[in-house]
Simulated scan of single mutants.
Amino acid sequence: MPGVTKEQVAAARQMTAIEFLRRYRADDLVKSSARGEFELKSHNSFKINGESSLWHWKSRGIGGKSALDYLMHVEGCSFVKAVRLLCEEQPCFIPQRHAEVERQRPPFALPEKSPTTTRVEAYLRCRGISPQVIQKCIDDGILYESLPYHNCVFVGRDAGGTPRYAALRGTYTYGKQFKAESTGSDKRFGFCIAPTAESSAAAVFEAAIDAMAEMTLAGDAADKYRLSLGGIYAPEEGRDIHPPAALEEFLHRHPQVKRIEFCLDNDPPGRAAAAALARLYGEQYQVAVHLPPIEGFDYGDLAQAALEYRTRNKAKNCARQQTKYKEGTR
């Protein structure tokens, strides 16, 4: 294996993620309310079991067990660098400060851009997103199609307009849906659909497609900011929620915003997070919780259901017209 030996790889895999975190990220590791479970201050949807060392980063949809898995998937180290970080030729463990690992992160880079958006537009229309909303996001430079895989790329930008975050979603409509974030993405800068005129209201969603879907259901009205958090962290009952990095940055950059609508998923994590966020921001802002009216749905599900309903009605109307035509020609 280039750069490392099989012995080094085997040794690196011996250290568990919880052992690594307890030794070298102790300031970041905190107990969760669940028995035997821990979380990270820096990644509020990260959970790890103190006994099995199994961890899951919900907002990214990834998990693992070893320190090697953790370094690669959470701290962004390459495989070779992670192995070298964990082993010497003996092998033995090499402690390394967190700041040094941070400097090893690859810089953020957007995926290569396709000259067309055909696949992205077709996929989003199948998801019930209106052509008007799709085109606005393309025109605003926050949505494009990537190469070579033709994924949807949802872009988050800083105050100067520089891309700092990208969520990726596959455009195929069968099998397990591909979801990821570009390496080096900064979650403070979430995907955000800006209104056509200055607004004092912001709607907050878990995912970019949810923001586009709700705008579609609202008649394509670009009447408020629509911000994606890139996932949520549902706190345990009785515990405070961590302020989402994307929302905190957004509010800092938009002091005119006075009203926040939490439009999260209507599932147990979404309901818990929405209630906790409403409490957290309720003293400073006018807050409202607008969950989808159907349990288990997000706004993307609502838009797709609305599309399917329209399609069925169109088919029924077409059948009626054909029947009338046949009867009239007899």
Rank of each mutant, 00 (worst) to 15 (best):
F191L: 08
A197P: 00
R259H: 12
S182A: 15
V287A: 08
E249W: 05
A211L: 10
A202M: 07
T162F: 04
G231W: 07
T171F: 05
I193L: 15
Q284M: 13
G156Q: 03
R169S: 11
D223Q: 12
F262A: 05
P293K: 08
V155Q: 09
T162G: 06
K179M: 02
P269R: 03
L229S: 04
A211R: 01
K179P: 00
E181N: 15
H252G: 11
K179N: 05
A159M: 09
P268E: 00
P269T: 12
V155G: 15
G156W: 01
R169I: 08
R259C: 05
Q286S: 10
G270W: 11
G170K: 04
I260G: 03
P235C: 10
G230W: 08
S199H: 11
Q286C: 06
Q284R: 15
P195E: 01
V257C: 06
A166G: 11
T171D: 03
A288L: 04
G170M: 11
G238T: 12
V287L: 10
K176T: 14
A201D: 12
D158W: 03
F250L: 11
C263E: 02
E198T: 15
R226I: 04
G231V: 10
N266H: 15
V155E: 06
Q177D: 10
L229N: 08
A222E: 04
G219R: 10
R157Y: 02
T196W: 07
P244C: 05
P268Q: 08
L229V: 09
A197V: 06
A273F: 09
V287P: 05
L229W: 06
Y172Q: 11
P235Y: 14
A234M: 11
H252C: 13
E248T: 15
G184K: 04
L251S: 07
P255T: 14
V153H: 01
Y165F: 12
H252Y: 12
F154W: 13
T171G: 03
G175M: 12
R226S: 14
E236N: 07
F178C: 01
F250Q: 08
A166L: 03
E249I: 14
L280N: 05
A201F: 02
V153A: 04
E261P: 04
F178P: 00
T173R: 10
Y174C: 14
A202V: 08
D240G: 13
A207N: 13
A201M: 05
Q284W: 07
E248V: 06
T171S: 04
L217I: 09
D223A: 15
S199K: 03
E283Q: 12
G230Q: 00
E261G: 01
L168P: 01
R226G: 02
F205K: 14
T162N: 04
A278S: 12
V287T: 15
H290S: 13
P195C: 01
C192L: 06
A221I: 05
P163G: 13
G170F: 07
L247M: 11
A276K: 09
P268V: 12
F250P: 02
S228W: 05
F205N: 10
A273G: 07
T162Y: 02
A288W: 03
K179T: 01
C192W: 08
M215Y: 04
Y233C: 14
A203M: 03
A197G: 05
